[in-house]
Design a protein around this nucleic acid. Structure first.
Lengths: 211, 211
DNA sequence: GTCTATACTTCGATAGAC
DNA sequence: GTCTATCGAAGTATAGAC
């Protein structure tokens, strides 16, 4: 099997610019990476970058677009969700969140998660994306899950939106703690850590609300 | 009463540099503010800045030091804490968190909270500060609170650290949502929003653990 | 599509007169 | 302690030869 370098070298230049930029942006942040540095790492002159992307911002836009597309196609089919829930809330949280997390945590996506985390404030496009796709959309999704569980008499009656926040804010906290505060430390991956701690969190929440 | 501008003009230049820098850093982030811009806003030339601070980084250091000092002296006295807790967990959470939040939310401090939020990743000093003072120290503090409540048989037995995370991660989530995602929107202040939503969160948590 | 060369801008910081 | 003047470094981006 070829190593990463030789595999990258036969890829089109535009794709190599994309990969190198993502790697550097996710490590240092957008502003801290220069076009010169990207070009050096790709192995071309900086002027050649502009044959593939209009400017530096356009590279970031391409990364965000890629991220959006990956997220959009990662949802579970409706019928799978219903089938899973019929096995009870415990199974739903254990299996459901594992499947979901695995889908959105490829090595490529890990870098983009990191980039989104560290640039959420500095870049308006990323901020809007975060608010919509990583906050509002999941909260509404979990609100619906809790409402369904209530209708199926699996859990006690609560305000489903309150439950959604109780559940999901902890996930966002883990996300922030891992990607922003502790990225330099020696975790294996976000997934291993998150799954274990989300398990404890879910146990606590379920104990409080299940019938 | 004098307006802010004339009050600022009679202050020492060093203090005016501090205030202007804090204002600008908290709005745009450290890197996005130039020494020229600070000087212009203060009303002096940029070379004069260096008579008061060694360099741009030193201004940021001064702000962080000020922030640390304010936080250190804002704790409640031990006896007050105990007295409050003896009135039951509901009172403790309602009154205790209100007093605490009020102490650390002066207009000056709001700007620093914001600055810390948006520069946590980009600046190593701020990141270490965040991890220690705004994450580990409060978590340990709340862990002790829950342990005391358990010893006083006010709440059911749980892992106190788990409870600390259940309680405090929601606060950090609100903090992040307000200072990073929604700062440009029309909230009155973090406090009004946070107190109301922390109330709901605390009600839910207490319902789950109280005896 | 890549190269060399360079324009243009902005930045942090310093020297030295007053 | 403030000013004028200026330096050197680094950044984005473009023109034009090959």
């Amino acid at each position: 099997m070829e190593d990463q370098k030789s595999k990258d070298n036969i890829k089109p230049t535009k794709e190599r610019i994309f990969n190198v930029s993502l790697e550097l942006f996710s490590q240092k942040g957008f502003n801290a990476v220069s076009v010169r540095e990207i070009a050096r790492e790709v192995g071309i002159r900086e002027s050649s970058i502009y044959n593939h992307y209009k400017n530096k911002e356009a590279i970031l836009d391409a990364i965000i677009d890629y991220f959006k597309a990956e997220l959009t196609q990662s949802g579970l089919p409706e019928e799978e969700t219903t089938k899973l829930m019929d096995q009870g809330p415990e199974v739903y949280f254990q299996v459901g969140s594992r499947v979901y997390i695995e889908q959105i945590n490829t090595p490529q996506m890990e870098k983009i998660w990191r980039l989104v985390s560290i640039e959420t404030y500095h870049n308006q496009k990323i901020r809007e994306f975060f608010k919509k796709e990583l906050l509002e959309e999941p909260i509404t999704g979990w609100e619906n899950v809790f409402r369904m569980m209530m209708e199926k008499k699996m859990i006690k009656p609560f305000n489903p939106r309150t439950l959604a926040y109780e559940y999901f804010s902890f996930a966002l906290f883990l996300f922030f703690e891992y990607y922003v505060l502790k990225y330099d430390e020696d975790f294996d991956s976000f997934m291993d850590m998150a799954l274990e701690r989300m398990g404890k969190h879910t146990d606590f929440l379920l104990e409080a609300i299940k019938i």
